[in-house]
């Protein structure tokens, strides 16, 4: 079956992209890896008049790191490129791990990290890691540039903070806090390719004040971070008790639904189990 009809545009610069979006924004869809876009176009859930391919823009291929600014991931960088990056593997462990759980290697050869967050599925695998790492989203339009924290980017199921005419140029990930250990756990129905029943990213940093961050996917309308666990290791009591406390806070703060992959009760239960598991793993590794 042919895809619905559209015009294909391939800007060469971000200025050209911004101008094209300013002109056609309401009728246009950006096309990165297309692993979400082509599927929803085939299902006729979206019918753009213009499909704007961003892969011709050299600037969006940037994948760079420096001591001060941290990591920059341009909008055309694929998950395979991210996984192949030594800096990502060594310094941004949760993100590296999460990228490797998304779909399969063939999909990852095309799919981008920025496409994953712009698609804004509650199950987006890279989102929890970006949330615990306090990533920022660099948003550009013909009117200028703004940068927002990733936790303000997700607005609902398949809804983001992007306004008409805007696109994401890059995601920036600051260097994790001193001594941070992080991880991502994806709980699925099978070991193979599937969206997460629950995904959990955790980060524990030790710089004097034992900082904890937990973020999850597939347990609410958007991927979310649970800020209430941040100080859980500061009080007294056993580590075991503190971990249990973190898990019960998480379960209280999430609002999963039942769908084809799992029931609501199962998700609530597994979110607690996985929170404990990831904290134990991280503490065990430190």
């Amino acid at each position: 079956m042919p895809l619905p009809k559209f015009d294909y545009l391939r800007p060469q610069t971000t200025e050209e992209l911004a101008a094209t979006l300013a002109e056609h924004g309401a009728d246009a869809k950006l096309f990165a890896g297309g692993t979400d876009l082509i599927v929803v176009m085939r299902d006729k859930l979206v019918r753009p008049k213009y499909v704007i391919d961003i892969k011709g823009i050299e600037e969006l291929r940037e994948l760079s790191w420096d001591e001060r600014r941290g990591l920059t991931i341009g909008a055309a960088v694929t998950l395979s490129e991210l996984i192949a990056s030594e800096v990502v593997r060594e310094r941004f462990g949760a993100l590296w791990k999460a990228a490797g759980t998304l779909a399969d290697p063939t999909i990852r050869n095309r799919a981008t990290l920025v496409g994953n967050i712009c698609n804004a599925s509650p199950a987006a695998d890279t989102a929890p890691a970006l949330l615990v790492l306090w990533a920022e989203v660099e948003i550009v339009s013909a009117n200028g540039k703004r940068v927002i924290p990733i936790r303000e980017f997700f607005k609902g199921v398949k809804r983001t903070a992007l306004e008409q005419g805007e696109f994401v140029r890059a995601v920036r990930v600051p260097n994790p806090p001193e001594g941070a250990k992080e991880d991502y756990l994806k709980w699925g129905r099978t070991r193979g390719e599937d969206l997460a029943v629950v995904g959990v990213a955790g980060l524990v940093a030790n710089s004097g004040k034992k900082l904890v961050r937990i973020a999850l996917s597939s347990v609410a309308p958007t991927p979310l971070i649970v800020p209430e666990v941040e100080g859980v290791f500061k009080g007294g009591g056993s580590v075991e008790g503190q971990i249990d406390k973190a898990a019960s806070i998480v379960v209280e703060k999430i609002s999963p639904i039942s769908d084809v992959r799992a029931g609501k009760e199962y998700r609530l239960h597994m979110a607690g189990v996985l929170t404990k598991q990831i904290l134990k793993r991280i503490l065990g590794a430190s």
Partner: peptide, 23 residues
């Protein structure tokens, strides 16, 4: 034709790619 089965895999510049998701 939606990226699930992989039967349309080809090598694009040597890289395995699901050709149903490529224009």
């Amino acid at each position: 034709e939606r990226g699930d089965c992989g039967l349309c895999t080809v090598l694009l510049d040597g890289v395995p790619t699901k050709s149903c998701l490529v224009l």
